[in-house]
Design a protein around this nucleic acid. Structure first.
Lengths: 115, 115
DNA sequence: TGATGGTTGTGCGAAATCTGCATAACGCTT
DNA sequence: AAGCGTTATGCAGATTTCGCACAACCATCA
């Protein structure tokens, strides 16, 4: 059998459209860590434009996630809101151990015992 | 809080690219049920072109999934291979109960007790 | 006080992807 | 040999994604 593997993902939806998944989660984390959308996008290897678009998509449902300031000391900065922090934490709680569990189940079903 | 919900999916990859997920699974099932790619695509509400492309993507890794005949009685027909049948079965085994489990965990974490 | 620097914000054309129409190939059936 | 319903596929149009280029902003500092 070819080298076959399982992948899995979870994400949140609001009003039936994507709200928060793995990629956007990493983005918010990077913004929290760097204090800048620009620095975060570079860290993740995506364009600023893309990061900004993702934030737009997330926030269009009315939940404020990032507070931005343009101009000023350092040119500007961005920090994530307490609500965003809580979301990240809860998302982690749900995701915790999930991939491992699924990988295990995959091995059980797809990889015959070597006895 | 807005109406927020969780979604989840699993899929198989071969050589690092998508091989079998929910959509292609339904396609193979529909082909098995109808004996025809054309009928299957109509049943699923997708174009024949799209169904055919998905089969191409799946089979380009060398695992034969559908045996096709063009021309002949009825114009032609398609049946899925034993290997495809086995894949469907195993995929179900891995997926069984998964969505429910994730939904439960989501409720635990995101919906506070109403005491 | 005005020039500077680094960030956020955005329009728009290019690039890539997806979609499906149109048509060929095929081989039983009659 | 004509017809029929399926599989197979090229290709153009539609749609989405991508990212370059540039505007807006404001504390700092000369």
């Amino acid at each position: 059998m070819n080298d076959i593997q399982i992948r899995s993902k979870i994400w949140l939806e609001v009003d039936g459209e994507p709200f928060l998944g793995g990629g956007r989660l990493r983005l918010l984390r990077a913004i929290a860590a760097t204090g800048s959308i620009n620095a975060a996008s570079q860290q993740l290897g995506i364009s600023y434009r893309k990061a900004w678009s993702q934030l737009q998509e997330m926030e269009k449902h009315g939940i404020p996630l990032v507070e931005r300031e343009k101009g000023g000391c350092g040119g500007g900065r961005s920090i994530i809101t307490p609500q965003a922090r809580e979301l990240l934490s809860k998302f982690d709680d749900v995701q915790e151990g999930l991939h491992e569990m699924i990988d295990d189940k995959f091995d059980q079903v797809f990889k015959p015992d070597r006895n």
